[in-house]
C-alpha cells in the first residue's frame, strides 16, 4: 500500500538521503527498533498512576492546575456541579462585551458534558442565541455538507464566546488538550474572543508524559490516536512582538476561562 502511494520525487529523495547516510540507495532499512511495540516500564507506571488516582490526588492536581494557570492568564475555577458552570457562563455572557459588532451570540460544542449545561435554555433568558455545532451527517451529500459547514463557520465567526470541553487538561502547564472530531470544531476555541472550556476533574492529568502514555498505550484512547488535529491550548493568545511587551489577544481568544466540575 505504502509503496503504491510513493511518488517519484519521494523515491529519488529517499535514495539521496540513504546515500548521504552511507547506505545502499535502494535498500529499505529496518525501522522497528526505532519504535516500541509495547509500553515501557515508565509508560506502565504512568498508566498505573493515572488509574489509581484518588480524590485527594485529584484535588492536588486541581490545585497545581489553578497555580499553573495564573502566570499565563488562564482563569481556572473549580465548581461542584454543572449547574454552577451554567451560572458562571451566564454571568460571563451578561458581563462581557462583544469585540466585533454589538450582537451577542455564543457557539457551543455538541459534547456530552456541554449538553448537560443546557446553554440554549439558560441563555435564552438573556436573549443570547446559542449555536450548537453538531456533527455533519456524512452521507447527506456534498451540497448539504458544504452549506452546513458554511453555516457553522459563520455562526462561530459571529460568536463572541465559544464554549467547548476538552479531552484532557495538563495540570503542570495548564494545557487543554483537544482532539478534533465531528461536532467539536476547533474554531470554537479559536475564533471567538472569549473561550470557555468546561471539563470534569477526572480529565486532569499531571503532564504531557501522562497524556502521551495514555494516547500511545491505553486502549480507550489509542484507536482514535491524536485525530487529524490535536490542539494544546495553554491560556489566552498572546504576543510580545512590539518591544517585548506582553499583550493578550493576538489572534486567538483574549480570555480563556476553564471551569472544572468536581462532582
Amino acid at each position: 500500500m505504502r509503496e503504491k502511494m510513493k511518488t517519484p520525487d519521494q523515491t529519488q529523495f529517499i535514495r539521496r538521503i540513504r546515500t548521504a547516510l552511507g547506505h545502499a540507495p535502494d535498500v529499505t532499512r529496518e525501522a522497528r527498533h526505532l519504535f516500541a511495540e509495547s509500553p515501557s516500564d515508565e509508560d506502565l507506571q504512568l498508566q498505573e498512576r493515572i488509574h489509581r488516582r484518588a480524590a485527594e490526588d485529584r484535588q492536588a492536581l486541581l490545585e497545581r492546575l489553578i497555580e499553573a494557570g495564573k502566570p499565563i492568564n488562564l482563569n481556572v475555577t473549580a465548581l461542584p456541579d454543572v449547574a454552577y458552570a451554567t451560572a458562571a457562563i451566564l454571568r460571563l455572557a451578561a458581563e462581557k462585551k462583544p469585540e466585533w459588532g454589538e450582537a451577542k451570540s455564543i457557539a457551543a460544542w455538541r459534547h456530552p458534558l456541554i449538553d448537560r449545561l443546557n446553554l440554549v435554555e439558560a441563555l435564552d433568558r438573556l436573549q443570547i442565541p446559542v449555536h450548537l455545532t453538531g456533527p455533519i451527517p456524512v452521507d447527506a451529500g456534498r451540497a448539504f455538507d458544504q452549506a452546513e459547514r458554511e453555516r457553522q463557520r459563520a455562526e462561530i465567526i459571529a460568536s463572541f464566546i465559544g464554549v467547548t470541553s476538552a479531552d484532557f487538561c495538563l495540570a503542570d502547564t495548564a494545557t487543554l488538550v483537544m482532539r478534533t472530531r465531528p461536532g467539536q470544531p476547533r474554531s470554537a476555541a479559536l475564533v471567538p474572543s472569549i473561550h470557555i472550556a468546561v471539563i470534569h476533574w477526572d480529565q486532569i492529568l499531571a503532564d504531557m508524559k501522562e497524556l502521551f502514555a495514555l494516547l500511545r498505550w491505553d486502549e480507550r484512547y489509542r484507536p482514535e490516536g491524536l485525530s487529524s488535529y490535536m490542539s494544546f491550548i495553554s491560556g489566552p493568545s498572546k504576543t510580545a512582538d512590539i518591544e517585548a511587551t506582553m499583550v493578550h489577544g493576538a489572534h486567538g481568544p483574549r480570555e480563556v476561562h476553564l471551569f472544572v466540575v468536581t462532582e
Binding site: 478534533t180 495553554s234 493568545s237
Partner: peptide
C-alpha cells in the same frame, strides 16, 4: 509551554465542520 501546539495529521475528516 507555548500557548498553542497543534498536531496536524491531515485534512478535515468527514463529519467535521472545520479544517
Amino acid at each position: 509551554m507555548g500557548t498553542y501546539a497543534s498536531y496536524i495529521g491531515g485534512p478535515r475528516r468527514p463529519g467535521e465542520s472545520d479544517g
